[in-house]
Amino acid sequence: MSALSMVILAALGSLVIRSALVTVLAGVTIGPRIGRGLRLVAPSVLAGLVAQTLLIQESLGESTGGSTGEPVGELLFRSLGSWHVAAAMAALVAWRTRSIAITLAVGMAAVWLLELVT
């Protein structure tokens, strides 16, 4: 199958995922219990994404796993360095200011500076 067909299939599948609930279940009243659970979607998903993208990196292994759905390289913890320090600083700023703009600015500035001095 061509790359274009796979991109189109992934786009259609993503559209179904995004729109299934808001079209099929629209108007259904949500109980307070489920409502509480839904409020926890963002923190748990985002924390998982932070953990995955900040702490894990794929080693440059041989491409053997594609056909089994295994990661291509080995998934290793990123060695402690400027990313961790900059992320900790950004998290502190985010917590104090609750401003996305300031968090992004401080985080990027921190990682650049740390890369310069190390």
Binding site: A42, V50, A91, L104
Partner: peptide, 14 residues
């Protein structure tokens, strides 16, 4: 680094 940083900036306020 912008990738984890953006998720982090979204995570903390949530």
């Amino acid at each position: 680094f912008a990738v984890p940083l953006m998720f982090l900036a979204l995570l903390v306020p949530s």
